[in-house]
Simulated assay, not measured.
Amino acid sequence: MNFYGINYLQAQSSLNDYLKYIVIFSTLLVTIVVFSLYMRHRLQTKYRDLTIIAFLFLLFMLGVQYSEYTNSESAHSQSSQMVNFVNVLSKQKNVSVNDIYANSFQLVDGVIIKIKDSYYKVNLSADQNTYILQETWLTNPNITLLKNKDK
């Protein structure tokens, strides 16, 4: 079971997002180049066809990116709720934020929190404004503490 530290929770941007942006901008560049070649050589329809294909691919990638953007905004919002929860919990328990680990990126009912050597299950209210920490024990003590995103 993996438990994530505060630094790991805060660093949720991934390489996949950058890769998608590179693909979109390179497709846009190819579309512009092929369209300029088509405008220069109007008699050769292969450039027109390549422009249409690149443009349709660009529209497809933008649609996929928008869909994933909305999903990523939701996940980012939920992970920022977890970071905020860890900060609040740190103040209430008088421990450092570096001593608190969570087994989920998102603040959901039933998430397991590790505070120093104790484990707690978080029971959230329906509006997620109140919570109950219930001490719990793990049946499998093999856990991995992930403190930083690059490790």
Rank of each mutant, 00 (worst) to 15 (best):
L146S: 08
T45K: 13
T31W: 04
H76M: 07
H41R: 12
F85A: 04
M61S: 14
N142D: 09
K151C: 06
A126Q: 15
I112L: 14
Y21K: 14
N87M: 10
S26M: 11
N87A: 10
Y131S: 05
Y8R: 09
V122E: 09
N148K: 15
N7P: 02
L62N: 05
L133N: 01
I143R: 14
S80Q: 13
L145A: 02
F60T: 12
Y66I: 02
L58D: 07
S74C: 13
H41G: 06
D150Q: 09
S118L: 14
K91F: 02
V108I: 09
P141V: 15
Q81L: 11
S14H: 06
Y69Q: 06
Y38N: 09
N16G: 14
G110Y: 00
I132G: 00
D17Q: 05
A102W: 07
N16I: 15
S80L: 14
K46I: 13
V34C: 06
S14K: 15
I53P: 03
K20N: 07
L28G: 10
K149E: 00
Y119D: 04
F3E: 00
I100Q: 04
V122G: 01
F60Q: 08
L59N: 11
Y38G: 03
R42K: 12
L28I: 12
L62W: 02
L124R: 03
Y38R: 05
S96Q: 08
L50K: 04
V97D: 02
V64Q: 05
F3A: 08
M61H: 08
Q92V: 04
L89D: 00
Q44N: 13
K91M: 09
L62Y: 00
Q128I: 14
I24P: 02
V83Q: 06
R48G: 09
N123K: 12
T70S: 05
Q134T: 01
Y38P: 08
F105M: 02
Y47L: 11
V88G: 04
S104Y: 10
S90T: 08
L50T: 01
L43Y: 15
Y21V: 06
S104V: 07
A11N: 13
T139L: 14
I113Q: 04
N7R: 15
S77W: 15
V95I: 08
S77I: 09
K147W: 05
N71R: 14
N16A: 14
E68K: 06
V122F: 10
Y4W: 11
D127P: 04
M82S: 02
L19A: 08
